[in-house]
């Protein structure tokens, strides 16, 4: 039995779905962001696996992964800064405290 692309794709899909469940169900803003990160890990794994098995020399998937990493790092930085800003005005980091948008 050899390890193929399918095994990696299944694992990536599992991680992505776990992150998706967390992003939808969690009520703390930090946990929602951590779940989004889990989804990003799934996407990265998917791209690297495709890169290894479909374009091993060109490494196209690996370059895509670099961009996904940059965007998700920006997203996490902004997200956590937003959590801090909301915490300052609402004294809470629950997603429900975002119901009031004005000031």
């Amino acid at each position: 039995m050899t390890l193929g692309l399918e095994a990696y794709l299944m694992l990536a899909a599992l991680l992505f779905s776990a992150g998706m469940y967390g992003a939808v169900s969690k009520k703390g803003a930090v946990q929602v962001l951590m779940s989004l990160e889990l989804m990003a890990v799934g996407v990265d794994l998917n791209l690297v696996a495709f890169s290894r098995y479909v374009t091993p020399v060109e490494m196209t998937g690996q370059f895509f992964t670099v961009f996904v990493m940059i965007v998700s790092a920006a997203e996490i930085g902004l997200g956590l800064a937003l959590v801090l800003a909301i915490f300052r005005s609402a004294r809470s980091s629950e997603v429900d405290s975002l119901a009031e948008l004005k000031g």
Binding site: E6, M10, M20, V24, V54
Partner: peptide
Amino acid sequence: DFSWPGLALAVTFFAAVAVAVAGGVLVPGV
């Protein structure tokens, strides 16, 4: 925190991807 709709969404998504991966034809590179 637990939510049935969230679980249903995630399971549906995983099932869809699993069917696509199992049924898809992947062209391996050199």
